[in-house]
């Protein structure tokens, strides 16, 4: 997918350049501006994630959200999922490992769903773009929704 995006961006850039050199340069300037705008937050987020992941190990997580942990486990899984921001290449293998080491589908459902939809760490960035109210409402609704996902997973899996 990343390669497809690169191909698309490159093709669009070439097309743009053929149509207008000035506009293409302007596009690239705007691209850099947008990136620069969000860069400080990017770097902070990366550091926060790094620290969190090294303090909270998979073993600790699996102790907290085992399949016997019930709704308490779902709640803990949702909290962990909300405050952490784990990139996909770590998150899914981690979720699979947690399942193998005894976590239940309900808890994993809550964990995966909050991990993707609820972002406490990225909240300051979201507020910068959408304001406090919209950011808080979106994240709260996503959290509530994740409990619904957990419930369905508990019934269906």
């Amino acid at each position: 997918m990343t390669i497809a995006l690169y191909a698309l961006a490159f093709a669009a850039l070439v097309l743009s350049f053929i149509k207008s050199k000035e506009n293409t340069i302007l596009s690239l300037k705007k691209a850099w501006k947008s990136f620069e705008n969000i860069l400080p937050q990017f770097l902070t987020i990366l550091l926060v994630i790094g620290i969190m992941l090294s303090v909270l190990t998979p073993q600790q997580i699996s102790m907290l959200i085992g399949s016997q942990s019930g709704w308490t486990g779902v709640f803990i899984a949702a909290v962990i999922g909300s405050v952490t921001l784990i990139p996909g290449f770590i998150a899914f293998p981690l979720a699979a490992a947690l399942l193998n080491s005894g976590a239940g589908y309900m808890q994993i459902g809550a964990f995966v769903s909050t991990l993707m939809m609820v972002g406490i760490v990225t909240m300051p960035v979201e507020i910068k773009y959408f304001g406090k109210k919209a950011a808080v409402i979106r994240n709260s609704l996503a959290l509530a929704f994740s409990f619904a996902v957990a419930f369905v997973m508990g019934v269906a899996m």
Partner: peptide
Amino acid sequence: AVKLSWKNLLEMLAVLPPIFILLGLLDV
């Protein structure tokens, strides 16, 4: 933590350029 942040940074730098380029083109 530093190691993880670094790995994340590299991952991020690998995905972001096309997104921002498309965003710039879209804008113009």
